[in-house]
Amino acid sequence: MSQHHLDAARRAAAGQGRTAEPGYEVRGSGPTKLLKFSTNGIPATNRVQLWEHHNSKALISLDIRTMDEAPLQASELNMHFPSLKFAQVRGSAQVVERNERFIRQNPTDVIAIFFALEGEAFFYYGDGHESLKPGQAVIYDADRPFMRGFCKGLHELVLTIPRDDYLALSGGKPLLKPQVFDFLQGKPANRHMLALAKLVRGTLSGKPQPGGAADPGRAEDTAMELIGLLARGEGNGTDPGYLATARCYIEDRLGDPQLSTAEVAAAVGISERHLTRIFAEAGEPPSLYILGRRLELAKNILADPTQRTTPVGRIAAAAGFASQSYFTRAFKTRFGAVPLQIRKNSVLGATL
């Protein structure tokens, strides 16, 4: 690797302003910092070393090897908070490892959560192994030896939390072996993990989420609450964590007219009374929250130029309303105009 490229990598990973060097971009100088890395424009012979260097500064130090003769293709989007780190990682086939010697030389003192989005992977650790598929997440202590391999490439989200913070959230319970969650399956713990995955992805993409959780100013706190739910186990969570999972579940089910407070409570793993209380403390009961989110969804569809010929009745149904007349009344009460007027205003605004 040329010293020129290595110096550029170090400047970018350390957050010393923007750099025009191939592969790197750094934004932000406050408590939240965004970093981007890509192998595009980097000589093939330097890619693995720069990829290792970026990860060592931006996420986790790794010993990385490619699995074929093709040049490494990789990109990473990182967001740093005071305690947590979020990342979205894409790459071609590779093996990443932290063995005992490497860990002694490169201690990291973090717990990592890997969310598989695309590509199957093998995960070897201590005296065991896991085969991870898209839709699964694993929590593991990054200072315990492991090897992960991606035969057909990878697309994943990653979150790291300092071990001391994790231990505080878990009640002092150390993470001695990996914990695997099928975050697309229906158990409450899996739904907490799904809510965490959506929080990480939404925050990195800059897309707002219900309750403002994708706001960088709130994302770290919400993530901490969800990690606490996962670390402590069922029945030992905090109200903000349950609220975040409930909002995520509601968002996924807005189109179901049968969605109820009882269903949401069961999905989250608490009683209906408990759910009603935490929503009320956040500003409104769950039934009104669901109605509000449905109306916002319908309004967004009505304002979408690509949906201008979609019948209002179909939009109402897509937002979970079984009755178009009730939808129209509720919509006018909420926004002061009937649905067709909102659509007309959006069309006029788009043509001005």
Rank of each mutant, 00 (worst) to 15 (best):
S83I: 09
L169M: 11
F122E: 13
P71D: 00
V89P: 02
G128W: 10
H53M: 12
I113Q: 05
K173R: 11
N40Q: 14
Q49S: 13
G126M: 13
D164Y: 07
R144A: 11
F122A: 12
E156W: 14
G171T: 03
I113D: 04
E120G: 12
F150P: 04
N46L: 11
R163I: 11
F146D: 08
H54P: 00
L157I: 03
N55Y: 09
I42R: 00
L62S: 04
E76V: 07
P43M: 03
V48P: 01
K57T: 08
F150N: 10
L154T: 14
S170V: 01
K133F: 13
A168W: 08
E97H: 12
G153Q: 02
G91V: 01
S170K: 02
L169W: 07
G172D: 01
G128D: 13
R144D: 11
Q136P: 05
G41P: 00
G149K: 09
L154N: 11
G135D: 02
Y166E: 03
L157K: 03
Y166S: 02
F122R: 15
P107V: 04
K133Y: 14
D109G: 08
A137H: 06
E76A: 12
P145H: 09
I139R: 12
F102T: 08
M67G: 02
G91R: 00
L84M: 08
Q105Y: 10
G41L: 00
S83K: 14
D143H: 08
P174T: 02
T45G: 11
F123N: 07
A121L: 10
Q88L: 09
V48R: 02
P43C: 01
P43S: 06
M67W: 05
R47H: 00
I60W: 08
E69Y: 10
A112M: 14
L50I: 01
L50T: 02
S92K: 02
L132V: 10
F123T: 06
S92E: 02
V96A: 15
D68Q: 00
G126S: 15
P82A: 07
H155K: 12
E52T: 06
R148T: 15
V96N: 13
S56I: 01
P174R: 02
I161P: 05
M147E: 15
A121P: 06
Y166I: 03
F146W: 14
L62D: 03
L176E: 09
M147S: 12
C151A: 11
D109Q: 13
F150M: 09
E52K: 15
L159S: 07
A137E: 03
N46F: 12
K85Y: 07
A168H: 08
A93D: 01
F86D: 04
L157G: 06
S75G: 08
D165P: 04
F81G: 03
F150Y: 15
G41H: 00
W51H: 15
H129N: 13
E97P: 06
T66G: 05
L132H: 09
P82W: 08
K152M: 13
L167N: 00
P145K: 08
V138N: 06
A93Y: 04
K57I: 08
L50Q: 05
A116Y: 15
I64M: 03
H53V: 10
E76D: 09
S75Q: 10
S131Y: 11
E118K: 14
T39A: 05
Y125H: 15
D141S: 09
